[in-house]
């Protein structure tokens, strides 16, 4: 999946992706949650995460997510939401990166489902630590179900983005070859 592209171009792309993820995150934060269960959301910003996992080195994807989570908490959240976001994001990446390597591009949506489920598991673990009680585990099954649905949705979106960008890129390469 490594493309022959200069590092500078990659870094610029990562910057744009991070900015896009942040915008999505901040806008989604403004939409009130339809269900009164903390942690249930679509996680649209993860479309970018999934895309990055499939198209960049794992360390680049990790950096993108870290920057998004930190800046997202600064813009939209509080310190407590940072604790949940970061633990969810790290567990999500720790699972999604090896899974994406194993199952390949055909099943992007599937990596995303596993990523979402792991994200919610990480959040719940953080909630147990913060609240100092296991009572919050009662929410875990609900979060897992919502994670499967939201993960499939964001994964399909990421899959569409990938297909479209790849075909655009091929067209671009072709026309630049024609020019030469």
């Amino acid at each position: 999946m490594q493309r022959r592209e200069s590092r500078t171009a990659q870094i610029a792309e990562l910057g744009v992706l991070t900015a896009a993820a942040l915008i999505i995150f901040v806008i989604e934060n403004q939409i009130p949650s339809p269900v009164p269960i903390p942690g249930v959301k679509l996680g649209l910003a993860n479309i970018i995460t999934v895309y990055a996992v499939y198209h960049y080195k794992w360390s680049d994807a990790l950096l993108l997510v870290l920057v998004r989570v930190i800046l997202g908490s600064v813009f939209a959240g509080t310190m407590i939401s940072f604790a949940f976001s970061i633990s969810g994001a790290l567990l999500c990446l720790a699972g999604m990166i090896p899974i994406s390597k194993l199952i390949g591009e055909k099943y992007i949506w599937l990596s995303s489902v596993m990523g979402a489920v792991l994200h919610n598991a990480g959040q719940t673990a953080a909630a147990v630590a913060v609240m100092k009680t296991t009572a919050v585990i009662g929410y875990l099954p609900y979060l897992m179900i919502s994670g499967c649905i939201a993960g499939a949705f964001t994964g399909l979106a990421a899959q569409l983005v990938t297909v479209r960008l790849d075909s655009d890129r091929k067209k671009g390469e072709k026309s630049s070859n024609d020019d030469a």
Binding site: S111, M114, V117, P141, Y142, M144, C148
Partner: peptide, 22 residues
């Protein structure tokens, strides 16, 4: 890759079904 995908699909299905059961 297809085998791996099948395993992951099975894992996801187990998580989903056991959550619904819970």
């Amino acid at each position: 890759k297809n085998t791996a995908a099948a395993v992951v699909i099975a894992a996801a299905a187990v998580i989903l079904l056991s959550s619904i059961a819970a």
